[in-house]
Design a protein around this nucleic acid. Structure first.
Lengths: 220, 220
DNA sequence: AAATAATTTTAGACAAAACTAAAAAAATAA
DNA sequence: TTATTTTTTTAGTTTTGTCTAAAATTATTT
């Protein structure tokens, strides 16, 4: 695996994330995401095309090649492992880790990252609940879905909460729901869209639709 | 404290280290140290002078200002803390840490470094025995001297060994001398320049001149 | 002290990554 | 289907950090 500049890595990562949503990524989307100008994006797209990291025909938008995706997963692996380290070992709070990891992720020494992974105990998700690719770039492709979309009697892991207000956190704490908690939906009520869920062998309890809409889970 | 580019930081660090030996640093010395060309050095010296990090008159060599020294100590602090982390936590070997720390040292988030320091338990020296500056840039200015230069009845900490052959390591292990060991010189013999040293309360033992010349210590 | 050698600086170029302004292409509206 | 708007690309600069080749300065010899 070759080495890429910080700037190239930032473009690759941004394309990877935007690809998840749409199929293909446009110049303006990317310029907006990276807070740069469309002309700069076009310049970089030409460079990355030459390096065979993305497919790109003028005016047609772009998407990463297989090689490009591999590179992106490497960057994301580094980013999320550092986030985990910062939160778990250095006691950074939930919302501070991203910014610092943005810098650390560009130190691309494979041995460093694999040893860090081992030191941390091979964590499966970062502090935001997003999955961490393994040393081979494999990632749990369990897409993040809203708790409201889960099928009955399937188990999913709570991965993130979109609203971060203290009110919702109080409620989640009371119901013993945290990131990493395994939830099973037992019933859904059409009247108010509330649902009954279970954690492990404990008795099922009720979650309102407002709450469920703010909980996202990884379902295999 | 402002932010400096990776390149600027590498120059500042190199000047700091070269200054220790001579008083002032020359263009060629620096070009050689950084594996770059003299013309590039001159260009950078002009930039660093404008930023008031060094004193420099054409053809007269250069040395860091107080501000420049502060910046250098910040970089060295980061470098050595990461080295300690790599060796102690990630189980990198003694001779692998430097290269990786060369990259990590340029991530200059103060909170990150101070929390890392705390996580590591405020180590006083890196894995090579070199002192780590504290959060205020203070460093144990105990200069590294050769064991042969130590005065009688003073205590010093073994900080490094210049020869790294397995023969010397075998001998050091046998005599229970390691980095961090506190040594006190009790006698010196002019005949063969051998010396008698003590570790703690144990009985004094003899060290040959050849061995002493390869042991460096931090004497307060 | 003049000549030669070594060191250092200047001048001019180049590559990477960004920008602005203008041109070209695609999408949308009339 | 034209006309207009939006998006994207091109062309030409800028900044940072590097380089080579040549000029200037300092150091060393004879």
């Amino acid at each position: 695996m070759l080495n890429y500049s910080t700037s190239e890595e930032n473009y690759i990562k941004a394309i990877f994330h935007l690809q998840r949503q749409d199929g293909t990524v446009t110049t303006n989307e990317l310029a907006n995401e990276l807070k740069t100008k469309p002309a700069s994006v076009t310049d970089m797209m030409k460079k990355l095309k030459v390096k065979k990291l993305l497919n790109y025909q003028p005016y047609q938008g772009f998407r990463l090649t297989n090689e490009g995706n591999k590179v992106a997963l490497g960057i994301i692996r580094r980013h999320r492992l550092w986030e985990y380290f910062l939160a778990e070992k250095l006691k950074f709070s939930w919302d501070e880790v991203h910014e610092v990891a943005e810098d650390l992720e560009h130190v691309s020494n494979k041995k460093l990252i694999d040893k860090l992974d081992e030191f941390l105990g091979f964590p499966r998700t970062d502090p935001h609940g997003d999955p961490i690719p393994d040393a081979n770039g494999r990632i749990e492709m369990s897409k993040k879905i809203c708790l409201t979309e889960m099928e009955l009697n399937t188990i999913a892991i709570v991965s993130s909460v979109s609203d971060q207000s203290s009110e919702i956190l109080e409620l989640l704490e009371h119901k013993k729901i945290a990131i990493g908690t395994k939830l099973e939906v037992k019933k859904k009520f059409d009247f108010d869209n509330s649902m009954e869920v279970k954690i492990g062998r404990q008795p099922a309890f009720t979650i309102s639709n407002q709450l469920a809409e703010n909980i996202f889970v990884l379902s295999n």
